[in-house]
Structures are given as structure tokens and as C-alpha cells.
């Protein structure tokens, strides 16, 4: 691998309410390296700290211990340099802005001039295949379309890294599979590194090069499963290897802590 890893976590801990009776060990001693160009999913039951880990990497939460490097910089510097784009479970588009102005938000904050913004946002609309919706308002779009705009917004200033927190969690199954295929296509064409938090085993297997299995109380990484399914297509979902990997991830989730795992995991 050339250059620094996209994400490098060493002994990362995150403890909420430290020293108080309601202390929560959200993350204990997490080591994780994500190389540039990789697609890595974090999966685990509720409370395993996968969203917390994503937020620590994004420098939205300070870690209680350990070190984090993003593109060879501190997490804080990476955030200040717009090194990553983020997408959340709710598309979170600003309802008072037209779709195109939503995509332009990070460009405005970076201080791009108007013509550069407008050219780039049109390009982004093409990328997510919604070129005719630029002048609509977000609430006029379906949930899946809104999420595509949110992805366009995350990619707007061309960050090398995408951090996604269950971005398809609120979508129906059909839309969700379509969005997964779209995301695979977008990542392949833009060469992004992705860290993806999900509840869904098939989603994690379909999208990822590696699936990181986490377990709660305290939140930690239990297993890392490599997935090599070649180029993804709709046929991938029927593939024997696909189902084998799903079973492998499911067993890893159960192996961690019997009983504690079933909660919050979608087995579909």
C-alpha cells in the first residue's frame, strides 16, 4: 500500500460518564486499520459502539484514550481539511434549501465561488442520477432520492473518505438494495474509502471488502471477516459465496456473546 492508511485506530477507548454510576464503556481498546480504497463495514448489535467509533474517527467525539489517524493526520486536522464526508441515517437535508443548494452547503463552507459550486453540484447530481431534481425542495423527493442527495452532499468537496452511519436504515427493502448497488457504483467510479455502519448482515457483506464484527458491554471488535466477491452485481445476491459469508458473519455475531447478539441485528 502506498501512502498512509485512510483510518488508523490504535487502542481507542471511549467511556461516557467516566467515574459516575451510569458509566458506559462504549469502546475498549479498538485497533482498526482501513487502507485507502477499502470498503469496511462495522456491524454489531445496538450498544456495541459502532456509531461511537465512527464519530470518534470523524472527530465529532473525543476519544477517552488511544490514538486515531485519518490520512496520516490527527482526526481533528482531517476534519478541518474536509478529508471525509459524512452521511447519516436520516438524509438530514435542509428543507429551506433547494436540492442543489443542499449539495453546495459544504462547498459554501469551504469558500468556493459560485461558478465552481454550481458546476460541481450539477456534476454531483449526474453522479447520483438525479440531474432533473436540482431545483426541487428536499421534501418533494422520496426517501431514497433524499438519501442519494445526502450522498452527493457528502461527496461534494471530493473527500477521499466517506463515513456512513446506517445511511439506508430508514429505507424500505427494495429501495435499500437499489441504493446499495448505486453506492457500489459510485464508490467504484470515485475511488473512495468507505467506513459504513450497518445493522444488516447482507448489506455489510454485499458492500464490503471487510466486515468488522463488534460486540457490546464493553464495545469492542471481536472478528474481522474478509469478503472477496469480485465485482458486485444483482447476481451477487444469489451467489453461493455471498450466502456463505452471510452465515460466517452471523456466526461471528452469535459467537461473541450468546443471547446478547440477537437484538438489533437484521437477519435478512
Amino acid at each position: 500500500m502506498s501512502g498512509p492508511a485512510a483510518v488508523e485506530c490504535r487502542g481507542v477507548c471511549k467511556i461516557f460518564n467516566q467515574g459516575k454510576p451510569n458509566q458506559v464503556d462504549a469502546l475498549i481498546d479498538v485497533d482498526l486499520t482501513v487502507e485507502a480504497g477499502e470498503f469496511v463495514s462495522l456491524i454489531g448489535p445496538s450498544g456495541c459502539g459502532k456509531s461511537t467509533l465512527l464519530r470518534v474517527v470523524a472527530d465529532l467525539l473525543p476519544p477517552s484514550g488511544g490514538s486515531i489517524a485519518v490520512n496520516g493526520k490527527t482526526a481533528r486536522q482531517a476534519r478541518l481539511d474536509f478529508d471525509y464526508g459524512m452521511a447519516f441515517q436520516q438524509a438530514g437535508l435542509f428543507e429551506w434549501r433547494k436540492v442543489i443548494k443542499n449539495i453546495e452547503l459544504p462547498m459554501e463552507l469551504r469558500g468556493w465561488d459560485r461558478s465552481k459550486r454550481s458546476a460541481r453540484s450539477r456534476e454531483m447530481l449526474e453522479l447520483v442520477k438525479l440531474p432533473e431534481f436540482g431545483d426541487n425542495y428536499p421534501w418533494e423527493l422520496s426517501g431514497g432520492m433524499q438519501q442519494r442527495i445526502a450522498i452527493a452532499r457528502a461527496l461534494a468537496v471530493d473527500p477521499p473518505l466517506l463515513l456512513m452511519d446506517e445511511p439506508f436504515g430508514a429505507l424500505d427493502e427494495m429501495t435499500r438494495e437499489h441504493m446499495q448497488a448505486e453506492l457500489t457504483r459510485i464508490c467504484a467510479s470515485t475511488h473512495k474509502t468507505v467506513v459504513f455502519v450497518t445493522h444488516s448482515i447482507p448489506e455489510a457483506v454485499y458492500l464490503s471488502n471487510r466486515v468488522v464484527v463488534m460486540s457490546p458491554r464493553p464495545g469492542r471488535i471481536t472478528t474481522v471477516i474478509n469478503v472477496d466477491l469480485g465485482e458486485r452485481s444483482e447476481d451477487t445476491r444469489e451467489d453461493g459465496e455471498f450466502f456463505k459469508k452471510i452465515t460466517e458473519v452471523r456466526e461471528a455475531l452469535r459467537g461473541g456473546e450468546l443471547g446478547a447478539t440477537a437484538r438489533g441485528i437484521e437477519d435478512r
Binding site: 464519530r55 465529532l60 459524512m86 447519516f88 441515517q89 438530514g92 459544504p106 463552507l109
Partner: peptide
């Protein structure tokens, strides 16, 4: 929502920018 504030944080937006936008 918390998520919108996190989004602005992820863009390293200043408090004034978050206020205005």
C-alpha cells in the same frame, strides 16, 4: 436535530456559520 449539528461539525463549520446556515 443533533444530526444536523453533527453535519455542520463534520464540515468544521464555525459557530457563526452554523448560526447563519
Amino acid at each position: 436535530k443533533e444530526q444536523s449539528l453533527e453535519l455542520m461539525d463534520s464540515y468544521a463549520a464555525s459557530w457563526t456559520q452554523t448560526l447563519l446556515k
